[in-house]
Design a protein around this nucleic acid. Sequence first.
RNA 1: GUCACAGUAGCUCAGCUGGAUAGAGCAACGGUCUUCUAAACCGUGGGUCGUGGGUUCGAACCCCACCUGUGACACCA
Length: 564
Amino acid sequence: MDQKQQVIDTLSTVLDGELNKDEITNMIEIPKTSDLGDYAFPTFMLAKLRHQAPQQIASDIVDKLDKRAFEKVQATGAYVNFFLNKTNYSANVLQTILTQQDHYGDANVGKGGNVTIDMSSPNIAKPFSMGHLRSTVIGNAIANIITKVGYHPIKINHLGDWGTQFGKLMVAYMKWGNEADVKKDPINTLLKYYVRFHKEAETNPELNDEARLWFKKLEDGDEKATYLWTWFRDESLKEFKRIYEELGIDFDHYTGESFYNDKMQAVVDELKQKHLLEKSRGAEIVNLDKFNLNPALILKSDGATLYITRDLATAIYRHDTFHFVKSLYVVGLEQQEHFKQLKAVLSLMGDEWAKDIQYIGFGLITQNGKKLSTRKGNIVLLENVLQDATKLALKQINEKHPDLPNKEEVAHDVGVGAVIFHDLKNNRLDSFDFNLEEVVRFEGETGPYVQYTNVRAQSILRKANVKHIDPQSALQLSDANAWDILKLLGDYPATVMRANNDYEPSVIAKYALHLSKAFNKYYANSKVLVDDDEKNARLALVESVSIVLQNALALLGVKAPAEM
RNA sequence: GUCACAGUAGCUCAGCUGGAUAGAGCAACGGUCUUCUAAACCGUGGGUCGUGGGUUCGAACCCCACCUGUGACACCA
């Protein structure tokens, strides 16, 4: 970073009067390949100002520059290319990492402010699908990333534990269900009821009326309805918690939709009092024409509340309770409009903190190009995917490393890691088609590839019989093969910031892949464990790579076993 | 129809604020384990960056139009 400043300062002494430092800063770029240097300055703008050929300008600048701080500076075409002093740079970066360890890349832009994160939020009595995995792992990674830059995350699992689907479930249970089946395999059994309900309701629409009636009973506190609801909820939550444990993810709150039942009337009253409600087609709405949005439906024509009514209550509750500096919602892209409406209504209500609500959308997971649908029974169960992945990992371990201790645990870390990493490595806005083979792949740009890279580094450190390299020892490294690694290591703090600014875990995942690739290349070309002047510096490099890879994986919520 | 997101190699995708020959992985073919774990590394082939205009010294990236896909669009969440 201060390396870049040095480039800027050096250039500005020569370009004084033509370009100021800010202009120069904006023009500095990083060449695609390191044989073109580490920083480059294009001269096209100057060519325009000076009415001169850019190539000529580039070589003029090189002639006039003070080149002492750099390994070399040369003109290539229209560019001035700067090559950093490798030995100084390596000593700086490695010393910083070895000193700071896990804290390398930490920042304090958050200043300890609370950030609520609405994430995961599966529906009770429905299986945990790949779709919920996205919200869960993206939300978790964002929580880790914002923690690293100084915020305090509050992870909230906004369970779908209320609504007419419970009426459907109760009707189905009373008609076709029995207690023993539910106890044996709660979610799958409840799912069967749910699917059957929809199938039968197609030919027998009165079932829907019955379901509505039972949901009304639940709302009115009917004993039997409440009993069933509580039972379904408890059984489902038990299963969800098992899955979260497998994923290594926990929550600060499980306050679901039912939690806000008694908090909606206040919202409706406030909207009324502020004259924001109007009658339309029998329903109570908030007109959002001036936001160029569809109206927000607050009350149905029968007086019942709706999705947005509850989310308004939720947002207000979270603000009053947690005094957040940001409130994040990690919810699929198909709900984008809803969150725009939510913010619009809140700002009409005069809640200036509405601007702190940040919707973090992500693309759908489809199967054979179609949306996954619980109703139609076409879903991919996360649990099955995790099991398949773990099984496959164990098979690999048995082939490659049969005498590894704690094989099962490592297989689990690798299998689950593959699934999580697969979900996080692409831009979160992209949707993707579910393909089991793709998800549980262990070669190429995958989680296990990164894990394996760290295992290699760990293995070297074990063989060298050192735990930590002294940060104060000689860390100058001149090996050209190590250069790409050193630059990447130096980029890590900026990478973390970018992931934070964009709420984009894939930035970290891609970084981990790049660093792994660079290290594996180095590993194939240079031997670390040979006794010469730079051995200590090489070990420092290896330890630094391992520190940063482990940190990046931890941000993503992926485990980093020491052996595999 | 309106709005949103997307369209880059056979497939899955990178490409940071516009810049130097558009990059990876998978798949295909070929090479590398007596030497730090081959879940790796190296090489070969493979591209009208959806289409057409425009802005710019320079566009995969910015602007406009169009085409295609997906999703949302009033009493589900």
